[in-house]
Amino acid sequence: MAIDKSLISGNTDMLVLRLLKDRNMYGYQIIEELARQSNRTFELKAGTLYPLLHLLEQKNYLESYDGETVAGKTRKYYKITDSGCKYLELRQADWESYTLAVNNVLSGGVLLAGV
């Protein structure tokens, strides 16, 4: 499904951190998993993902280590850190407030009518 990229771009870090909260993954796996969980709505380019992963690692939200894949290849795995988890919680809370506000407007204020 094609979607306006600007809707995703500011929130890619949140999506990546959320995926890594469940299990440690390497770049290729992250793209595959994101596409699978979003029913192919979010199909990240590798060129977008790696700079983002490196940036999150610099900010200490992620840690990397060399791990082995099922096929026996060595890949750079990413793991969410404690500060990454805290940042994710904040981002999720922001996102929920944002979507609630957007939904309110889109529903013509119906959601707030009872308040």
Binding site: K45, P51, Q58
Partner: peptide, 17 residues
Amino acid sequence: QEMGSADVVGTELDNVH
């Protein structure tokens, strides 16, 4: 092709590193 534009990827990586 799936990787995206080399120019964009290079510039992004340059910004980070």
